[in-house]
């Protein structure tokens, strides 16, 4: 599969998703980009803006298994990754996979679970495998985790630690649809729409596109551009903790994926500039308390990006 073919497939995928998530083409694009970059997505928004629909829709479009886990404070790791039980008939211990064993997993309200449960996702997210009782089980491929969290309601929540946040490729916000689109949403029957969604891309094709994305050309100067942005976050006056090398690697891979999504076999500075905010914003810790929220970090990142010279 070459990049022109994949561009067509991706256009189809975006178009299909656009039927259930109206008026949010950028969000759809970012979600698809994260998928191609073998990444995970953290969606931070108030309830009812279509976070679940995005996850469900994505899963339906690529014809894969989809599981949804509702995170609550009494959720245990074994509820997520699975449990080993004793089979009386065979007289052996057997592993019963948890809901994490799916291609697309939606972890709803992830910050409601205890840190113990949250951290159960770490291995799954980075290594795409889970370890239970000295045994390791591979997760299905491709694997993508979409987590949501409510930015307003903090009581009874456990905010995600830095290590956990660092594993999410992007943190995006859905935002309210504009009036025209909202009108459309009201008038349509969303369940029916979801039901009628047909798969347009196969799992194999997704994997092929992921492989293709890894081959995208990133010019040496663009790598310098990424490093310059990363360095700026580390030296910025308003930022206590800059981004990690994992973050810069992620930006590199994701920019490659965005190039494929845009129908190119090479990166341009715009890919990096556009992705740097969604990828870096949730990873930095601002100096001042109170601007730790989405808008605050976004503004800091804007400030950083606007201080870096673009290589021409």
């Amino acid at each position: 599969m070459d990049y022109k073919n994949s561009y067509l497939k991706i256009a189809l995928l975006k178009d299909n998703l656009g039927r259930v998530i109206k008026g949010k083409p950028e969000i759809i694009e970012l979600a698809v980009t994260a998928l191609l970059a073998r990444g995970h997505l953290l969606i931070e928004d108030v309830p009812g803006v279509g976070k679940t629909t995005l996850a469900h829709g994505l899963a339906k479009c690529i014809n894969c298994t989809f599981h949804r886990i509702q995170f609550t404070s009494d959720l245990l790791p074994s509820d997520v990754i699975g449990v080993t039980i004793f089979n009386q008939a065979a007289r052996t211990f057997e592993f019963r996979p948890g809901p994490i064993f799916a291609n697309v997993v939606l972890a709803d309200e992830i910050n409601r679970a205890t840190p113990k449960t949250q951290s159960a996702l770490l291995e799954a997210m980075s290594d795409r495998q889970v370890s239970v009782d000295k045994s390791t089980y591979k997760l299905p491929r491709p694997f993508m985790l979409l987590a949501t969290q409510n930015p307003l309601e903090y009581s009874g929540t456990f905010p995600l630690p830095e290590s956990q946040l660092d594993r999410f490729t992007m943190c995006i916000r859905m935002g309210y649809p504009d009036e025209a689109h909202e009108r459309e949403i009201i008038q349509s029957t969303s369940e029916l729409l979801m039901h009628n969604l047909t798969p347009v891309v196969s799992l194999e094709e997704v994997e092929e596109m992921q492989e293709l994305a890894e081959k995208v050309v990133v010019e040496e100067d663009l790598v310098s551009y990424i490093l310059a942005i990363a360095n700026a976050t580390r030296n910025h006056k308003g930022i206590k903790l800059g981004v990690s090398p994992r973050a810069t690697t992620t930006l590199y891979r994701t920019a490659q994926a965005l190039a494929i999504v845009s129908g190119r076999h090479y990166c341009i500075p715009d890919d990096i500039k556009r992705l740097s905010s969604p990828i870096f914003a949730h990873r930095i810790i601002p100096m001042e308390h109170g601007i730790e929220d989405f808008e605050g970090t976004q503004a800091l990142m804007e400030d950083v990006i606007n201080s870096i010279t673009v290589p021409v």
Partner: peptide, 9 residues
Amino acid sequence: RAPQETPLE
């Protein structure tokens, strides 16, 4: 072109 501006922008 501003130095912070990408060619596309």
